[in-house]
Amino acid sequence: MAKSHVSTTVNGDPVEFLCDAPETMLDVLRNTLGLTGTKEGCGTGDCGACSIIVDGRVVCGCLMLAVEATGKQVTTIEGIGAPDRLHPVQQAFLEDAALQCGFCTPGFIVAAKALLDRNPDPSETEIRYWLAGNLCRCTGYDKIVRAVQHAAAEMKGQPA
């Protein structure tokens, strides 16, 4: 079976790749493009470790076919924050000890950033429901929720 040719944008850069029809965006990010910051915890859309942002929406990379990336804007954990400054969500995760093993962390940061992009002032309940697609087995979520609240406060305090 011939491979498909895909042109897309990943973290602001134009990217082209070849993929088999059943390959997922997660497979291509990790195995073809070498972007291993996006993790695979289940491959079935149930853990959120593979969260990426596609045209402004949080998507499970494991549920998206790679060919669907054609013409889209894809953001992965590697595209969040700048070389000289972590994104406020990343910084808050560090300051608030919101990670233990860190395996779920890229997915949470991607999802939390997308939340704050659309809702700069979420309630605790909104944060918990927004992040309900992301599993963390280590932290019990307490410090993750606090870190997102902390990041929201930081971002409001900063003039855009």
């Binding site: 149930d46 429901y129 992040l131």
Partner: peptide
């Protein structure tokens, strides 16, 4: 699978 082996998610828990 994680859908049916149901571990707690953020909305299941309080602080």
């Amino acid at each position: 699978g994680f859908l049916d082996y149901r571990m707690p998610v953020a909305s299941d828990l309080p602080m």
